[in-house]
Design a protein around this nucleic acid. Structure first.
Length: 690
DNA sequence: CTAGGGTTAG
């Protein structure tokens, strides 16, 4: 009993004394006395004492007295605090009279145990009874339970209740609210709470920083860290392990080094986790030397330390160093785990190196790590990238198939190996098995539907996306727009586009629709969509310009194309790339405005690429313009002497005008650079009259 | 009595 209760020895002694000296029976120990004993036993988390007390309540008939009905709920609390949550719940459910203490304890233990729904149910019951008011030891756990059950609306309601109950300025409650909002992905909600806090503690700052990072706002995380340091707020180990991943993600080496200095200055490096985070930061920033020097200084390396470093070498394609380190790690008595292995396998997949991958697969079997999801997923991916879909499927069929990741791996594997139809079939099976797809699933799957361009399939996918709610995600709606456009059904594509609320329309979505209309030759619609987009406040980029210019070119809308080009030139001059000029030269050239095309090339702010001259030469071939053709050819023969197409085009221009001698010269020139072996030269000869 | 923190993968 001593070892179990630790410093609470007096409690057990008291109990032993009472039980041995007094005769059993409810009257021998007063109710108040019992109450104290139960409280003490609960707070001491001493399950053995609790069990003794429980036994006594049964044999003595203690609970039969009307004065002691509340004792059962206290007993339940004692069990709960002792870690026996199931027994606790059973007893608590039977308790006729539940005390405030027992409610609080049960709520807390349920929340910590992961039974957040039960915790919320108890809280609701407590409120309904109207006997007790939640306090500063209640709200934190209830808030946490809301976050764990992913019930943000309920969380907000509890937040409101905490405010009206006067716990708005309670630090613990506020910190839990921060964590809750961050856990459900509500950065704004968290920020509101944070801004309203009079004195945020280290914990508040840390929660915000890590929350921002976890919610894809690494930039905000770093900005907050800056503000924290500049504001003179203390930082601790949790701060640095929250901020370092963000530095790594953004490759912000400068700030990463600053954090490193902070770690040294404050002596935070005693913890392995801090040093591991440093190694990881350097790895992610691509600074393997610095990562290694931090790594080498860690005396007590754990699996994570080794794995982080191994992963670093893997990422850099240095599989030799990665394997060497893996061996060294085992020499030092640290066993690689599934993560280590998955990292090595991923490296084999990216190289790709099938032979080594197979060796590692064998090793995984011997280490009994083969049935770990991470390893399985890495193996599926490995074999797919090595174009061994048979092996990929073999691994896949052995997986438990209840989790989403292996499905995603096999789907993306199929698509990598141009098995779009199989991917779609697998997706159907996945749904039948009741596995929930996620964003990553659609990221690889939607292109498969676009490749198939099957209207029937597109429609059934569309209905699924509506039913499952995935259509609400802009990236997914974008994929669907693309699919419909590829099917040639622009109307349906446009309808999906219109279904996305104005605020959620991003550049990618607009571009998908614009490109769709563009490839089908609807130049005018493309232009009006483009101006609509700019009007709605979205800044177009190079990709948009390319597709709009292409559309103009495709539809032969020369003047519209020109005015658009001038618009870009005036508003976004830095966005202009070679391919935009190529597009314009092509557009003007086709229309026979060769001089203008030439002028445009001469006005280019950078060296015209062969593609630009190629477009001009092509246009000259159509319009049989020797002068400009020669100008273009002069550049092209210089820039890409091995491109037969250029000689053919130029030869054709001469031939068309009956200048056989010049045509012959071009042929000679091609001969000189050793291209005559190529079959393309015959084109010139074919057009030569007998 | 309570709150925040690292490594893989999609």
């Amino acid at each position: 009993m001593i070892h179990e209760c630790g410093q609470f020895l007096p409690l057990s002694t008291t109990l032993t004394y009472l039980l041995s000296s007094a005769a059993p029976g409810p009257k021998s120990i007063s109710v108040t006395r019992w109450q104290t004993l139960l409280y003490n036993s609960a707070n001491a988390k001493c399950i053995r004492t609790t069990k003794q007390l429980h036994a006594y309540t049964i044999t003595s008939g203690l609970l039969l007295s009307p004065k002691s009905t509340h004792l059962l709920s206290l007993l339940a609390s004692a069990y709960a605090l002792g870690g026996q949550i199931v027994v606790a719940r059973y007893l608590f459910d039977k308790s006729p009279d539940r005390t405030f203490f027992s409610y609080k304890t049960m709520i807390r233990m349920c929340a910590e145990d992961g039974s957040s729904h039960k915790a919320l149910k108890l809280f609701a019951e407590m409120l309904e009874s109207g006997r007790y008011k939640p306090d500063n030891y209640t709200f934190p756990f209830v808030v946490r339970a809301c976050g764990d059950s992913l019930l943000p609306q309920l969380g907000t309601a509890v937040h409101g209740l905490a405010l009206v109950s006067g716990y708005g300025s309670d630090t613990f409650t506020a910190n839990c609210l921060l964590a809750m909002y961050m856990n459900v992905g509500d950065r704004e909600g968290a920020k509101r709470v944070f801004d309203a806090m009079e004195e945020p503690t280290i914990v508040s700052w840390n929660t915000m920083i890590s929350g921002y990072f976890r919610n894809d706002s690494a930039k905000e995380a770093l900005m907050l860290f800056r503000k924290m340091v500049d504001g003179g707020v203390e930082t601790d180990a949790a701060t640095v392990v929250s901020v370092l991943p963000a530095c790594g993600f953004l490759k912000d080496l400068e700030l990463g080094r600053e954090v490193h200095l902070l770690v040294i200055k404050k002596g935070l490096g005693k913890k392995v986790s801090v040093r591991n985070a440093l190694v990881d930061m350097y790895v992610k920033c691509g600074k393997m030397d610095e990562a290694r020097s931090v790594f080498d200084k860690i005396i007590e390396k754990d699996v994570v330390t080794w794995t982080t470093m191994i992963h670093g070498y893997s990422l850099n394609g240095d599989i030799r160093s990665a394997l060497g380190l893996c061996q060294l790690m085992q020499f030092e008595g640290v066993k690689p785990n599934a993560v280590t292995l998955a990292s090595l396998l991923a490296s084999c997949a990216n190289l790709p190196n099938l032979k080594l991958g197979k060796c590692l697969h064998g090793w995984a079997l011997r280490q009994r790590l083969e049935s770990d999801v991470n390893v399985e997923t890495a193996l599926i991916d490995l074999y797919a990238k090595c174009k061994c879909m048979r092996l990929s499927f073999k691994v896949f069929f052995k997986t438990s198939k209840t989790r989403t990741v292996p499905w995603n791996a096999i789907l993306s594997g199929c698509i990598y190996n141009v098995l779009a139809e199989e991917a779609i079939e697998l997706f159907r099976e996945m749904l039948l098995e009741g596995v929930k797809p996620n964003d990553a699933t659609f990221k690889s799957l939607l292109p498969a539907f676009a490749v198939q361009a099957d209207m029937q399939q597109a429609m059934s996918l569309h209905s699924y996306l509506i039913r499952s709610g995935f259509i609400l995600r802009t990236e997914i709606a974008t994929g669907l727009v693309d699919i419909y456009c590829k099917c040639g059904n622009l109307k349906s594509g446009h309808r999906v586009f219109s279904g996305v609320p104005l605020k959620k329309r991003d550049i990618v979505l607009w571009s998908a629709l614009i490109a769709g209309y563009g490839t089908h030759g609807h130049g005018e619609i493309v232009l009006s969509l483009f101006y609509d987009m700019v009007q709605s406040g979205i800044r177009p980029n190079e990709v948009t310009f390319t597709s709009v210019l292409h559309a103009c070119s495709h539809a032969g809308m020369v003047d519209d194309g020109l005015s658009l080009f001038n618009f870009i030139y005036g508003s976004f001059p830095l966005c202009l790339r070679t391919n935009h000029y190529t597009c314009m030269v092509d557009l003007l050239g086709r229309a026979g405005r060769l001089e203008e095309a030439h002028e445009l090339i001469k006005s280019m702010p950078f060296q015209p690429s062969p593609t630009v001259w190629g477009a001009l030469l092509g246009a000259c071939a159509i319009h049989e313009n020797v002068e400009l053709g020669e100008e273009a050819a002069k550049w092209l023969f210089e820039l890409e002497p091995a491109n037969t197409g250029n000689y053919v085009l130029m030869g054709n221009i001469y031939a068309a005008l009956g200048r056989w001698k010049d045509a012959e010269n071009v042929r000679h020139r091609m001969n000189e650079v050793g291209l005559l072996k190529s079959p393309a030269h015959s084109v010139i000869e074919v057009r030569k009259p007998a």
